[in-house]
């Protein structure tokens, strides 16, 4: 990792007010990463998505956040104004969500949205130039007929295509950091790999930092350099993606073991035994 990390987070805590008192959903998460591909893996309720949202500055209104340090490219995110934060989100950070259906505006054509996205990033670009750039980007995410997709409405494109459009929309602004939250969970298995490769390529070519959030250990290990394993709002361990098999923590090992595989042995699957100690140790 380079000397100055792209992102560094120290002791991030996020709590929600409940009838019975505040409940902490993220409990002291710290990590830093540079222009690499970082995977964050965890099951539902592990706090992985909240961590990403905190970094983007888009937590739900009733969430209470406390953090010792949260920096992005040298900028102290805990001190900047909402306006700067919004500007950062538009220009230097991007986020891809699970279902493109909910992230694309249903009443605007795909092309219009990409053009808009380019011009928000840099208002000096002319409409014409933005259009050319949009078509170029659509081609770069392997959309075979960019002219046609450009004119289509979001409901007219398939899920895989929609996710490619989202990727195009995000990478076109050349952000320094791209966060992808379960980018392929809503897609068919045969499309997942394609979309991931496109994302991988787009990020690699432009030298961005990628934060891939997923419940799918295999997917993450295939496309990331490093993997953070989260459980109940805490980081259990950090591993090089290639060395998942050598994971130390019983949770990681259990998670790997309990997945059925095509060639796995018949009979009962090993079941993950949750140790209450994982919550505290």
């Amino acid at each position: 990792m380079s000397a100055a990390p792209l992102v560094s987070i120290e002791n991030l805590r996020i709590a929600f007010e409940r009838d019975a008192g505040p409940v902490e959903a993220v409990r002291g998460v710290s990590f830093e990463f540079g222009r690499e591909r970082l995977g964050i893996v965890g099951e539902s309720g592990s706090g992985k998505s909240l961590t990403a949202r905190a970094l983007m500055g888009v937590l739900p209104g009733h969430a209470r956040l406390s953090v010792d340090r949260m920096e992005f490219d040298g900028i102290d995110l805990t001190r900047v104004s909402t306006r700067t934060r919004r500007k950062l989100r538009g220009e230097r950070m991007g986020m891809i969500l699970q279902d493109p259906k909910f992230s694309l505006n249903p009443v605007l054509r795909v092309g219009t949205q990409i053009v808009e996205s380019i011009r928000i990033g840099d208002p000096r670009v002319s409409r014409r130039a933005a259009r050319l750039k949009a078509l170029e980007t659509l081609e770069a995410v392997q959309i075979r007929n960019p002219e046609r997709v450009f004119k289509q409405y979001p409901h007219e494109v398939s899920g895989g295509m929609g996710q490619r459009v989202m990727i195009a929309m995000m990478v076109v602004r050349q952000p320094a950091l791209l966060i992808a939250d379960e980018p392929t969970s809503a897609l068919d298995v045969t499309v997942q790999d394609q979309v991931m490769s496109i994302l991988d390529e787009a990020v690699g070519e432009r030298g961005m930092g990628l934060m891939l959030i997923s419940h799918d250990l295999r997917l993450v290990s295939r496309f990331c350099d490093r993997v953070i394993i989260m459980y109940a709002g805490r980081v259990l361990e950090t591993l090089p993606a290639g060395k998942l098999a050598e994971a130390q923590h019983p949770y990681t090992r259990g998670l790997i073991a309990c997945m059925p595989s095509v060639d796995g042995p018949p009979g009962r699957l090993p079941v993950l035994r949750r140790d209450p100690e994982w919550l505290t140790s």
């Binding site: 099951e43 997945m259 059925p260 993950l272």
Partner: peptide, 10 residues
């Protein structure tokens, strides 16, 4: 979740 999937499949 995968860990729950294993329990249900069993």
């Amino acid at each position: 979740d995968v860990s729950v999937q294993a329990e249900i499949l069993n």
